[in-house]
Simulated scan of single mutants.
Amino acid sequence: MADDGSSERTSAALLQSMALLATLSTAADVNQAMKERRAGHDPAAQETPGRARAGLQAACETLMEVLMQLLMGPVSHDAEAPPTHADAVRHFDCLMKLRRAERLTHAVHQRLLSLYPDVSEALVEEARVVEQQLTALRAEDADATVSFGAAIERAIGLVVWARHEVA
């Protein structure tokens, strides 16, 4: 059976779709950051306790949603079989969610810093470590010493701890 080029067209369409999704995701992040800046909120600056608590609660809620999606997302497949387009899409989706979890964890860390010393130093440090682990996972760092499941579970623990300590 002769290849009519449909496989190449499918692959090209798949890559274009993923590139568009990544572009839209980045544009949404930039748009949100610009709105914050225009409203006079510098993400690197200390926030008032009330604003930091509200932002922390929102970030924790969204982070938990993303972490649950990541935890439920892995699908087993035959390691011997060649990768399919569906495998590529699942991998890309996982990388996008890991990047979002990183950004949310960074926001949690920043807001915890704004609340320090009203929150424990150990909690602030845990947020920093979790962010590093998520970054290593997304970068597929060969030196990463944490597994996917362990990193996600640790991030969930961070959210629970932050909710408990800030409540």
Score class of each variant (00 low, 15 high):
V108R: 11
G149I: 00
I152T: 06
T10A: 15
E140A: 06
A167V: 03
A107E: 15
H41G: 10
E65Y: 07
T48C: 14
A22F: 01
A88N: 12
Q16P: 00
M68R: 09
Q32R: 05
E102R: 06
H85N: 09
R163A: 10
P43R: 01
V130K: 04
P49L: 13
H91E: 15
A155I: 13
L134N: 08
R9E: 15
H41E: 09
A144V: 02
I152R: 02
A22H: 08
V66W: 05
S120W: 06
R37M: 08
D93Y: 07
A144G: 03
A142S: 07
L113S: 11
R138D: 04
Q57W: 01
D4K: 05
Y116I: 08
P74N: 13
R37K: 12
A167N: 08
L15I: 12
E153F: 09
L24T: 02
P43D: 02
T48I: 11
E153H: 14
A107W: 12
A22V: 03
Q110W: 05
N31W: 08
S120M: 06
T84I: 11
R53M: 06
L21T: 10
E140G: 09
V129R: 04
V75H: 12
A101S: 10
E121A: 00
V129H: 01
N31V: 02
V30L: 04
K35L: 09
S6L: 15
T105W: 14
D78N: 14
Q133F: 03
F92I: 06
K97E: 11
E61Q: 02
A136W: 00
R138F: 01
F148G: 03
R9I: 15
L56V: 08
A39P: 12
R111L: 09
T23A: 06
A127C: 02
L21E: 15
L104C: 00
L14N: 08
P49V: 15
E125S: 08
A54E: 08
Y116C: 09
P43W: 01
C94W: 15
A144E: 05
H77K: 13
A101C: 15
P43A: 11
Q132L: 07
S147Q: 04
